[in-house]
């Protein structure tokens, strides 16, 4: 991992409108948590449903998308990635450095607020905050890796990533039971299920299976992204 690349990526990612959007999203999550705590009081099922649907179901994937594509997409788009590619740094190292930044940003802006939201809504009871925080953490890493890969493979990473998140995980996952085994959301939910007590969370995937699949996806996506960066071509549009 190369610290200079990481620093430059971090500065580019967190300057300007992108960082603003991320902050607003985290703030919205926390504001909603506060609102619910004030209006509903402490109801663990509500917490589990809210965090499952809004945090794991919408916020984390969107975050992973914005951050994962944001660490390398704009550079490829305007061609300034040549500056990094022509340095004596191996392509996998470049990917890894950028991934570290993506994971750090997602953890900071999404996983930690999820944990805090859990604390706000249910305190430390029932392992909800810890459970969903851990699930958010794992999902963040997985989504970041997948979307960094997508950004290297195609210029339209954001749209295809959305198609995956919305159509696959939302629509198909809802109607085709088998598909749920292949959903990052379900894998992280199974982790939450294990940590959270009292049957508040249910997932269709067993923890062992989820763990293996998560590891495969994270490692595989990172490795493949490094390979694809080797043969990246910059000419023309579309």
């Amino acid at each position: 991992m190369n610290t200079t690349v990481a620093q430059l990526t971090a500065r580019a990612l967190l300057g300007g409108r992108r960082a603003l959007l991320l902050l607003v999203m985290s703030a919205v999550l926390l504001a909603l948590a506060v609102l619910l705590r004030l209006s509903v009081g402490v109801d663990h099922q509500v917490t589990a449903d809210f965090l499952g649907a809004v945090a794991l179901g919408a916020l984390i994937p969107l975050f992973g998308l914005i951050v994962g594509t944001g660490v390398i997409g704009p550079e490829i788009d305007d061609g300034s990635v040549v500056y990094v590619l022509s340095k004596p740094i191996s392509r996998p190292t470049i990917i890894l450095s950028k991934l570290v930044v993506a994971v750090a940003a997602t953890v900071l802006f999404a996983a930690v607020p999820t944990f805090v939201a859990g604390l706000i809504m249910s305190g430390t009871e029932a392992g909800l905050a810890v459970g969903f925080g851990a699930a958010a953490l794992v999902a963040s890493v997985a989504y970041s890796a997948v979307f960094v890969l997508l950004a290297v493979v195609t210029r339209h990473a954001v749209v295809y990533g959305l198609a995956y998140a919305l159509i696959w995980e939302g629509l198909v996952g809802g109607y085709v039971p088998g598909a749920r085994t292949l959903s990052i959301q379900q894998w992280s939910l199974s982790l939450a299920e294990t940590i959270v007590e009292r049957d508040l969370v249910s997932s269709d995937v067993r923890l062992a299976v989820a763990g293996v699949l998560l590891a495969v996806v994270i490692v595989g996506a990172t490795w493949y992204a490094g390979q694809r960066l080797r043969v990246l071509s910059l000419a023309g549009e579309e």
Partner: peptide
């Protein structure tokens, strides 16, 4: 790319929330 992500975020996140 950023425009795409921002639009999706505003619509999908607002609806989910």
């Amino acid at each position: 790319g950023f425009g795409v992500a921002a639009i999706i975020t505003v619509f999908a996140l607002s609806f989910a929330a």
